[in-house]
């Protein structure tokens, strides 16, 4: 279980460009939750993920994961338990290293001075076969020559070789062509279900947000303005979501107008 309390992240603090990206946010993520996060650009979705992964350290608040306070832990320490997939399919793998070397790095099996063994290789092959992309025959190939979809699928495998306590997906299919995006999304769904992972997924696709997961969160100006459970989600349509979306955007507009008058 992950408890986020009073989380606040401010960019450019103390300057005229000060922006409150996350504003005293509270969120409890239960084990096996698959939460989709939607919201306009600048609503704080990615910042929330970055604060959880440790890429950014929040100004205020606490993040408690399985009873441990990890608020100030460095990114590499948290990475033992938190998986992260970037929007950029090139970001999650080392391009000049082979598929098996990338996997070995993520697998972290054996001592620091151990090398890839035949047993590891068989294990990697088995895992890659589940992707159904033919990657199991490309163990020795450099990752840089693979397509974006393959690289993102590989990154997914690397992040779930050992079950992470939390998997963060930051629009991880947004930079792929529609077919690859669909494939990676199906793989994500399958992996999360099979391994019973706890997962936070940011997406701009309302339909995806409704189809996947057991919870849906809408963010606005660094706050959570909507938190739907599975039953509530099933009653929603894309139109309903868009209407809610617009309502909040218009409210801002009206506030601005009032200020101007």
């Amino acid at each position: 279980m992950i408890q986020i309390s009073n989380l606040t992240k401010v960019f450019n603090k103390g300057t005229i460009n000060e922006k409150i990206a996350i504003d005293h946010l509270h969120l409890t993520i239960n084990d096996s939750d698959f939460i989709c996060i939607i919201g306009a650009n600048g609503s704080g979705k990615s910042t929330l993920l970055n604060c959880l992964s440790g890429a950014m350290i929040c100004e205020e608040g606490n993040i408690v994961m399985n009873g441990k306070n990890i608020t100030l832990n460095s990114q590499d320490r948290r990475a033992h338990e938190i998986g992260y997939l970037f929007q950029d399919p090139m970001a999650g793998t080392a391009p000049h290293m082979s598929v098996e070397e990338n996997l070995a790095m993520a697998f972290k099996n054996g001592s620091w001075l151990s090398r890839i063994k035949e047993k590891d290789r068989a294990f990697f092959k088995e895992k890659l076969k589940e992707l159904d992309m033919g990657l199991e025959d490309k163990l020795k190939m450099e990752v840089g020559v693979l397509s974006g979809g393959m690289r993102q699928a590989l990154t997914l495998v690397m992040n779930t070789l050992k079950k992470p306590s939390l998997l963060l997906l930051d629009e991880h299919t947004a930079a792929l062509d529609p077919q690859s995006a669909d494939k990676v999304l199906q793989l994500t769904k399958k992996t999360v279900e099979e391994k019973d992972l706890t997962c936070l997924m940011v997406t701009h696709n309302m339909q995806t947000a409704l189809d996947l997961g057991n919870r849906l969160i809408m963010m606005h100006e660094g706050r959570i303005i909507l938190d739907l459970n599975k039953e509530e989600k099933e009653k929603m349509s894309v139109e309903d979501l868009v209407r809610l979306f617009k309502k909040h955007a218009e409210k801002d507009l009206n506030n601005d107008r009032m200020l101007l008058l």
């Binding site: 992964s53 890429a55 990114q75 590499d76 320490r77 990475a79 033992h80 992260y84 970037f86 970001a91 999650g92 793998t93 080392a94 391009p95 000049h96 290293m97 070397e101 990338n102 070995a104 790095m105 993520a106 972290k108 690397m158």
Partner: peptide, 18 residues
């Protein structure tokens, strides 16, 4: 491998446990 990855893709290394 970790040293090679540090030179190859610093973004990835930061997000992994290295």
């Amino acid at each position: 491998l970790a040293i090679r990855a540090t030179g190859d893709n610093p973004i990835m290394v930061q997000a992994s446990s290295i």
